[in-house]
Nucleic acid binder design. Structure first.
Length: 247
DNA sequence: AAGTAAAACAACCGCAAGGGG
DNA sequence: TCCCCTTGCGGTTGTTTTACT
């Protein structure tokens, strides 16, 4: 027994929306507000399924949407957030007013991935490509999860998914203790090739670069007593993440 | 101008989480 | 506590547009 379909497929339109359908949907939501997507199509006189209406509204018709090209600032913000959150497009979208998760996802796949690759950065791990390929011992959030999936080949999809989530968003996991990858604490950061959040995002020497700070021995970071505290930029990243609002 | 490839965008599908009965 | 329903999310596919030969 499968679940019942979300709608009567035989009597629903699919594909591109017409102007008339858009108008109907807008008019209905203006009059009644969002919500009750399942019953909305019938009430609004649309031959669409509720999911389709919701998607159309959220991704295209919402009045607060900011259409047009992404700015350089938005680009960098998306990269940072993706580094932090992984493919949590809705969370990323929550930090970009007027942008939708779908829009950001598409933009990532068509523009930013290539941009990072051009910078020599693996878009999945946000680490330099050659380093990711060579350094098998260093933890790489996304890459390690993928490797684990490939290795195991077992159907424990959920387990794997949660592993990925835990590793990418350590702050969410209240059980695990987060440990930075092994790193000789006496060795200067430069020598080990570890990068701060900014550098791993391709923003070498940018204003967010903490490598520089670490390397000149900033006392504010307490780097001598807490090496690795700035692990992949999580010092700032965690703070950022905690301020995120869920939709 | 026509054909083809690549890029960009919109929409669909399946799954999971959360809430209510 | 369990089951069902609704909603939301992320991955993927399909279609349209643009660039190139």
């Amino acid at each position: 027994m499968g679940r019942s379909p979300c709608c009567e497929k035989a009597h629903t339109n699919k594909g591109a929306w017409t102007k008339e359908e858009d108008d109907r949907l807008i008019a209905y939501i203006r009059a009644h507000g969002e919500g009750c997507w399942r019953s909305l199509p019938k009430a609004a006189g649309l031959l669409r399924c509720g999911k389709s209406c919701r998607l159309r509204w959220i991704n295209y018709l919402r009045p607060d949407l900011k259409r047009g090209n992404f700015t350089e600032e938005e680009d960098e913000l998306i990269i940072k957030l993706h580094n932090l959150l992984g493919n949590k497009w809705s969370l990323i979208a929550g930090r970009l007013p007027g942008r939708t998760d779908n829009e950001i996802k598409n933009y990532w796949n068509t523009h930013i991935r290539r941009k990072l690759l051009n910078r020599g950065i693996d878009p999945a791990t946000h680490r330099p490509i050659n380093e990711a390929a060579q350094d098998e011992t260093t933890i790489s959030f996304a890459a390690s999860a993928v490797k684990e999936e490939e290795k195991s080949g077992v159907g424990e999809k959920d387990t794997k998914r949660s592993v990925v989530l835990q590793e990418r968003c350590p702050d969410l996991n209240l059980e695990l203790t987060i440990s930075p990858p092994y790193q000789n604490q006496n060795e200067p950061l430069k020598k080990t090739g570890s990068l701060c959040f900014a550098c791993s995002s391709g923003l070498q020497n940018g204003k967010d670069c903490s490598c520089r700070i670490s390397s000149i021995g900033s006392s504010t970071s307490g780097s001598s007593t807490a090496p690795g505290y700035d692990f992949l930029g999580m010092k700032s990243a965690v703070l950022d993440y905690r301020s995120l609002e869920t939709k």
